[in-house]
Amino acid sequence: MVVARIGRAHGIKGEVTVEVRTDEPELRLGPGAVLLTDPASAGPLTIETGRVHSGRLLLRFEGVRDRNAAEALRNILLIAEVDPTELPEEEDEYYDHQLMDLDVVLADGTEIGRITEISHLPSQDLFIVERPDGTELMIPFVESIVTEIDLEEQRAVIDPPPGLIDDRAEIVSSRDESGEDEA
């Protein structure tokens, strides 16, 4: 599971800024944590120290002692190995690996596609869904749209607003638009 992306070097002693991509930074990004990297050639990296400075997490890794070594790590993704049986503490929370490859369907069972990626944006998360024809679709992971996650059935049920999915937009636009009450 990707837990962070390394940003720019901070100072001259090997610290880096980190863009956190986990809801559990204290668990995944604490001193002593060993993280895999993408690209793999950069790691694994062991966190030596961590601190918050001006609202940003700063990390120092073992063996990274100066600004040049820290800057060489820029844009590397940090990956925590997570036991597949481990579940988040909250009932309605999911780890990315639990959501990957779920089938995405409408409430009536109509197949939309398969989740191939989860994009973590500041305002909300997005499911990147590969449709059967190979095109991609972005579905906001919000309760009003993603109405059910069924891990046993390996599916995510969605109720998209008109226009989010092409087929639904065509259905809406092909309806009788008179819509006036006859009185």
Rank of each mutant, 00 (worst) to 15 (best):
I6H: 06
I6M: 06
H10W: 05
H10I: 08
I12R: 15
E15F: 07
V16R: 02
T17W: 09
E19R: 14
V20C: 10
R21Q: 14
T22H: 01
T22P: 00
T22F: 00
D23M: 07
P25F: 04
E26M: 08
E26S: 04
L27R: 15
R28W: 05
G30C: 13
G32H: 05
A33F: 08
L36W: 02
T37I: 03
D38Q: 09
A40N: 04
A40D: 10
T46H: 03
I47M: 03
R51I: 08
S54H: 14
G55N: 09
R56I: 09
L57N: 03
L58C: 05
E62Y: 01
G63A: 12
R65D: 12
R67H: 11
R67K: 06
A70I: 07
N75L: 02
L77N: 03
L78R: 03
I79M: 05
D83R: 12
P84N: 04
T85H: 13
E86R: 15
E86Y: 10
L87H: 11
L87C: 10
P88M: 05
E89C: 02
D92L: 06
H97K: 11
D103A: 14
D103V: 10
V104S: 00
V104N: 01
A107E: 15
A107M: 12
D108V: 11
G109P: 06
I112V: 14
T116P: 06
E117W: 00
H120S: 11
Q124H: 13
L126H: 06
R131Y: 04
G134T: 12
T135A: 12
T135D: 14
L137K: 05
E143A: 14
E148C: 02
I149A: 03
I149V: 15
D150K: 03
L151S: 08
L151K: 09
L151E: 04
E152N: 13
E153F: 09
A156T: 03
I158W: 00
I158S: 02
I158P: 09
P162G: 01
I165D: 12
A169L: 08
A169R: 05
V172L: 14
E177P: 01
G179H: 11
E182A: 13
